[in-house]
Design a protein around this nucleic acid. Structure first.
Length: 452
RNA sequence: UCCCCAGUAGCUCAGUCGGCAGAGCAAUUGACUGUUAAUCAAUGGGUCCGCGGUUCAAGUCCGUGCUGGGGAGCCA
């Protein structure tokens, strides 16, 4: 008989004479005459209660059916006479698909996140980690819908790169040779790394297709030990031709709002789990994200606000220096209490490709700061003027030969264009209230940790 | 990489002044009238993170290493 997902069954009002479900046992409660089995198949947060009367077909499996076991149940979907669930399945036939050893580590009680990280292969079977993975999937689809609706093209930028200085952090070296063999004899005939950003490629595509985005894995070999950095993470990078910094911020804000709204609509059960058990202020945060207009504040004015702030900071604030975490948090969490775009940063603290403003002192950069996470988005209008771009590369000691194709794009029909990078895991942390990036990735990679 | 905290049963943790290794939950076995973190009873379960030191005696004190967590920097 065809398997029906539990999510579908729970949406049914009418009793059904015979259905089949397949899933994993969350818990079993037994009395002499019958047993209750709670089965979850991952289709939704809720499990369904199955009643197995002693003596019905398959009841002999009951002693082997323990927490974690995989089962198939055929039976009638009926209104439940008990409290706590509207419907339940009265088993006509029970099959043990895969037993679960008594050492199965997941118990009915709550487990700590740190313990669950040590059993990452099993943690998606818990309510919380199942929920984050369903939200992760939904948020990914929403991102694709958002850009598809606006005429953007999805592009796939390379993961392997030959440039050793994309400027966004330490890179992972990629090689097929051993020991001291020179790079010239390696697979590509030169040093090769895993990408830290698809931006430069995306710019080339935007200058042909208009509006594009890339959404894929990104690698940083930084030795970061924090709750919001991973060595492998997913980054969304849109790039828009004929778009300035204001348009860039408009798109960013519209996107974040769209994803928040979509997840609230599509995953109410999951969101309420996080709102109840993970972050009591989550609903308020999400409604602010969805409904409020985000602050847009030039860097210069942010410095003013911080210098006048009553709070005393560990690090002093002055024009020309990068803001510390404590400053970013103050702006987003204390002063404005909502997302803040900071823009027009001093050129000295930003990469070569950002467009020089007329003051010759700041560049058209923007960061979106959100409460608790800090930097969710980093973007800019790109420098489209060839002379200015090569001058900046010169100043920052970058090889113009190596980036010949990038400079070339400024010689043939160069146009103002903008884009940004959004850390997908950070967005998920924002959506769920989860405080550690390791808990929004199924199998996280961090320094010294590559299990699973 | 730097600063701080932690590591005791499968999990969460207690362990006083250095003096016999503990609890709750889980697991196993049994009982049980529709239970839902079921209830009741019984049973099993330990490299006290590793190494070295002090001491008659170390889970406890000292040194060191490893692992995990929090914060900083770097960034998304």
């Amino acid at each position: 008989m065809k398997r029906v997902k539990i999510k579908t069954l729970l949406a049914c009002n009418a009793p059904l004479e015979e259905v089949t479900i397949k899933g994993w046992v969350r818990t079993k409660r037994e009395t002499k005459e019958f047993s209750f089995i709670e089965v979850n198949d991952g289709s939704c947060l809720s499990s369904i209660q199955v009643i197995v009367d002693a003596g019905t077909p398959g009841a002999h499996y009951l002693p082997q059916i323990s927490t974690g076991a995989a089962v198939s149940v055929t039976g009638a979907l009926v209104a439940s006479p008990g409290q706590g669930q509207a419907v339940e399945i009265r088993s006509h036939d029970l099959t043990l698909v895969g037993s679960s050893h008594e050492t199965y580590p997941l118990q009915k009680k709550r487990h700590g996140d740190e313990f669950l990280r040590t059993i990452a292969h099993l943690r998606p079977r818990t309510n919380k980690y199942g929920a984050i993975m369903r939200i992760r999937s939904k948020a990914s689809h929403l991102i694709h819908h958002f850009f598809e609706d606006r005429g953007f093209f999805l592009i796939h930028t390379p993961v392997i790169t030959g440039s050793d200085c994309e400027g966004a952090g330490e890179m992972f070296r990629l090689t097929t040779v051993k020991g001291t063999t020179p790079a010239s004899e390696d697979f590509f005939g030169q040093e090769t790394n895993l990408t830290v950003s698809g931006q430069l490629s995306a710019e080339m595509m935007a200058l042909a297709l208009g509006d594009v985005y890339t959404f894929g894995p990104t690698f940083r070999a930084e030795n970061s030990h924090t709750s919001r950095h991973a060595a492998e993470f997913w980054m969304l990078e849109p790039e828009m031709a004929f778009c300035d910094l204001v348009g860039n911020m408009d798109i960013t804000e519209a996107l974040v709002k769209y994803v928040v709204r979509g997840v609230l609509e599509a995953c109410p059960e999951e969101i309420s789990l996080f709102a109840n058990f993970v972050d009591k202020t989550l609903m308020k945060t999400l409604i602010t994200l969805r409904d409020d207009t985000y602050i847009r504040l030039p860097y210069r004015e942010a410095i003013d606000i911080l210098q006048k702030a009553k709070k005393s900071f560990d690090y002093p604030v002055s024009f020309g220096t990068d803001l510390q975490s404590e400053h970013e948090r103050y702006l987003a969490e204390v002063h404005f209490k909502k997302p803040v775009f900071l823009y027009n940063y001093p050129k000295g603290i930003k990469p070569f490709y950002m467009r020089m403003n007329d003051d010759n002192e700041t560049v058209a950069a923007m960061d979106l700061l959100v409460p608790r996470i800090g930097e969710l988005v980093g973007g800019s209008q790109r420098e489209e003027r060839e002379e200015k771009l090569s001058q900046r590369m010169e100043e920052m000691g970058l090889s113009q030969e190596e980036y010949w194709w990038y400079l070339d794009s400024r010689r043939f029909g160069s146009v103002p264009h903008s884009g940004f990078g959004l850390g997908f895991e950070r967005l998920l942390m924002l959506l769920t209230g989860i405080t550690n990036i390791r808990d929004v990735i199924a199998f996280p990679r961090t320094p010294g940790s590559i299990d699973f």
